[in-house]
Amino acid sequence: MAKLAVHKVAEFGAKVAGNIAKVMVGKEISVKMLLVALLSDGHVLLEDVPGVGKTMLARSLATSLGGSFSRIQCTPDLLPSDITGLSIYNQKHEDFVFRQGPIMAQVVLVDEINRATPRTQSSLLEAMGEGQVTVDGRTHALGKPFLVMATQNPVEFEGTFPLPEAQLDRFFLMLQLGYPSMEEESEILLRLQGRHPIADLKAVSDPAEVVAMQQIVTEVFVEESVRKYVVRLVRSTRGQSQVHLGASPRGSLALLRAAQAHAALDNRDYVTPDDVKMMATSVLGHRLTLKAESALRGITAPSIMAELLRQVDVGAESKDGA
């Protein structure tokens, strides 16, 4: 594989991240994770409180990529057709015409996904997984690239429909933006005193380039010991006493792909165990279903992942590591 190709991915990452940084203060790691998901053709679940910049992040990413952006505010009365689109009777032509739903954009922000009913959630997640929607028997392909950023509020529980484990697995990774630091918040106030910088944000890429970058990422070299490490790590989540359900093989695939994207963004054409470790919590954390007792003891998925990362053999220079 030519090194130049990876160089392009790194350049792409740098210019998109730099462009987003004009709008988002701090959050470099979150932006990098977002780019990892984008380059791995995955979707992101953002679990965070309102007002920390989730929408701004999605909008700035969409603008930077030169793609279309849409936002879906989930409520209990949201119907699947409100997302996928519906056929409306056109009286002039005496025919049904398909009106596209917001899912047809390239970057879609699904706000408070756990407020939508399970049926609506299911149809959204199916669209995410298959890359197409079927309305009234006709299949409509979704755009390329296609990135869904769904958010959910971890604090509120009343009137919500928590995503089932099987649906959570469809998200490539889960992120928490968190509150900005004092300096960052001060910088935000300074920047937003006048005109909002998002209005002046220009596209630095185009959808075709993103698709090409996604292709390059799939070719990043993964040495056998690293592949074994991914498998060991994912399998270790299944035997944990605090975990009810561990990560699925889809989790292994996602972790490997994320590691590849991470390596490519770091201008490397090979994956190291550090890439795997860096991505493991974000990719696997939300795929673990904790036992109720574990949750009561205050154990969280990130703490379990951190413990596993401290225990699982990397296989760097062990005898079977080669």
Partner: peptide, 11 residues
């Protein structure tokens, strides 16, 4: 000690 769970760069 180079613990088996450490990556080379962590070490």
């Amino acid at each position: 000690v180079f613990h088996p769970a450490l990556t080379p760069s962590e070490y």
